[in-house]
């Protein structure tokens, strides 16, 4: 049977009417080319995202590379007990959560404020220029952006050159526990505040200007207009992004932290992801690293599903 002979009559194919009175088998047969189109993508997902699920069993086994995953003996929750009782684990969890919360408290409001300020600008070329400049770092990798930061704070960076020129001692900020988290939070804000504002600007542009007219007629001044019209207008997107960021609390930002991390600051900067990398890839302790990774994955999944439920309960648009 070739493609032409099973073509539905015009107006019928793909429409719900076509569903009635047709057996499932004929509908499946009719859609066979669609399945062929989707198949390569599904195969990719099967191999590279679903097959690794099998590897999770390593967390419950004593993994022997020679015998493979299947033939390695089961050991139950041994690695999880070891993880929860290790000295390292509470520190990792603490560092991860603290850095994430700092990001949330200090980083989250910055793009909103930036968007509100940009929204006040009347000169188009000024607005566009500032946007073009501040969006740019978003497209740089953390390697490059960290390089620019090191140019300032590194052992032979600008700040230390200025200090030595002025006759002071050098300070090495990259190995200083007291400033590590501050550096992480501040540099993350510097890199992303411009880009983060876009979504709020889109929401601001979508506010109906009649609302402002109405507020003015009611005698609302500038600040009251912002409070009663502007902020409610962008509230849905604020709620959504806030919940998402809260759900990602165990993702403290491997890509960034890895660039600044060194053994001198492990006590304040070593997070779950950096530890899994060192333990698993560098030291080949696969079982423990898998267990820590699984812990993070499960908590992360619970958080994102909870966040979605909350967003839905609030009556905002949910993720799925």
């Amino acid at each position: 049977m070739n493609a032409d002979s099973v073509q539905a009559p015009p107006g019928m194919s793909g429409q719900p009417i076509g569903k009635k009175g047709k057996s499932l088998r004929s509908r499946i047969w009719k859609s066979r080319y669609i399945y062929i189109l989707v198949l390569p993508t599904l195969i990719y997902f099967a191999i590279f995202t679903y097959a690794p699920f099998y590897g999770i069993t390593i967390a419950f086994k004593d993994f022997k590379i020679m015998s493979g995953i299947l033939d390695s003996p089961w050991v139950g929750f041994k690695h999880f007990e070891a993880m929860f009782t290790s000295e390292k684990f509470p520190d990792l969890l603490k560092n991860t959560v603290i850095i994430s919360l700092y990001r949330l408290v200090f980083g989250f409001p910055v793009p909103i404020l930036f968007a509100l300020l940009l929204n006040e600008v009347r000169s188009l070329w000024f607005k566009r220029s500032i946007q073009t400049i501040t969006y740019f770092p978003h497209f740089l990798s953390w390697v490059v952006f960290a390089g620019i930061i090191y140019n300032f704070i590194g052992p032979s960076g600008i700040i230390n050159l200025l200090l030595t020129n002025a006759g002071f001692e050098k300070i090495n900020m990259t190995t200083n526990e007291d400033v590590f988290r501050t550096i992480i939070v501040v540099t993350a804000i510097l890199k992303e505040f411009g880009w983060g504002a876009i979504i709020y600007l889109a929401a601001l542009a979508g506010i109906d200007s009649q609302l402002y007219e109405a507020a003015k007629i009611d005698g609302a001044g500038k600040l009251r207009q912002i409070w009663h019209v502007t902020l409610p207008g962008i509230r849905p997107i604020i709620a959504l992004l806030f919940c998402l960021q809260l759900a990602g609390i165990l993702d403290a930002g491997f890509d960034q932290i890895f660039m600044f991390l060194n053994p001198a600051v492990y006590d304040v900067g070593d997070i779950i992801d950096t530890y899994v990398y060192r333990l698993g890839i560098l030291q080949s302790q696969f079982e423990m690293a898998t267990a820590v990774g699984l812990f993070k994955g499960i908590i992360g999944m619970i958080l994102i599903i909870t966040a979605n439920t909350i967003i839905r309960r609030l009556g905002e648009k949910s993720l799925w």
Binding site: G14, Q15, P16, G18, K19, L24, R27, I28, S31, I34, Y35, V38, T41, L42, F45, I47, F48, T49, Y50, A51, P52, F53, Y54, G55, I56, I58, I69, D273, V276, Y277, G280, I281, F286, A289, T290, G293, L294, K296, G297, I298, G300, M301, I304, I305, W320
Partner: peptide, 30 residues
């Protein structure tokens, strides 16, 4: 093509990896 039988299942197969991933080490071994 939402009329295709199994459309929802296929869509969920794409969405689930956004919610849960196996982690670094299982990927490394694969």
């Amino acid at each position: 093509k939402t009329h295709v039988p199994g459309h929802k299942i296929m869509l969920w197969l794409i969405i689930i990896p956004m919610l849960f991933g196996a982690g670094l080490i299982p990927m490394y071994i694969l």
